[in-house]
Design a protein around this nucleic acid. Structure first.
Lengths: 137, 137
DNA sequence: CAGTATCCCCTCGGATACTG
DNA sequence: CAGTATCCGAGGGGATACTG
């Protein structure tokens, strides 16, 4: 089946690339901090230990479901420690691990980059959108 | 209606926070580079100008739809320049803008962080998953 | 207080087919 | 070559209601 070789090689390259993407540390990191609440939670915990309700108050937009889900992911990935103190009612405290503290500077550098360049991005968007509407008229 | 004050203040805080999130440069940046193909495209273009098919070949996993969509977004946001050369067939070349070149170091630093810490994250995940299965047994 | 469970929408992204 | 158009499934994320 020599005729299929090209398509087959395509298939193999794609499969290999997909596997590479799944294993790629950068994309795994994106999966961790790329969702809506992770960075916000991380940056809030960077100020010190917080209880569930405290994080919830600091982030008025987050639903209980997403806060729990975000916290659980961060715990599983080793960024956050969850400490339960038996009491009535039960107390739960979240703190950054060492790994959690180590990602803070990275997030900070992303914030700084964003702050420095967002004006330029906004300008580019306006420029592009104006060009489009002219082109269509 | 003094009785509604607490709930109303909640609503207002949430609305204000939502507005803040939408305007937050960091989250806008996440929206730009947080999707599946943006960083890959950016890093490919960092090596020099590329034609559509060249990027497509460099990234065997991307569909035409997503490649076009990613390229268009990056163009709109000012990271990429699209140059059409009238010919038969038409030639289209993509290059990084100055803004595009300026985000490369940020992506590189994310890659380096990911490479340095992914082992630790994997270990944390295994640890967490083991703990869960013990807790459930 | 600190969640869990359920429903539901909406966007992201892939597959396929077609075009100048 | 460099796309566009359409359909579709997966899952991220919100609203609501309930619980130890």
């Amino acid at each position: 089946m020599v005729t299929m070789t090209a398509a087959q090689r395509r298939e193999r390259e794609k499969a290999a690339f997909d596997a590479y993407m799944d294993a790629c540390p950068t994309h795994q990191l994106m999966g961790i901090i790329g969702n809506k609440w992770s960075t916000m939670v991380l940056m809030d915990l960077a100020h010190g230990a917080r209880r569930y309700a405290e994080v919830s108050n600091a982030l008025p937009g987050v639903s209980a479901k997403m806060l729990t889900q975000t916290l659980r992911s961060l715990e599983r990935d080793g960024f956050v420690t969850r400490t339960v103190t038996p009491a009535v009612p039960v107390q739960v405290e979240y703190t950054l691990t060492l790994l959690g503290e180590r990602i803070v500077p990275l997030i900070t550098s992303m914030q700084e980059w964003a702050d420095r360049h967002m004006d330029e991005i906004d300008a580019a968007r306006k420029n592009y959108d104006d060009g489009r509407h002219l082109a269509s008229g």
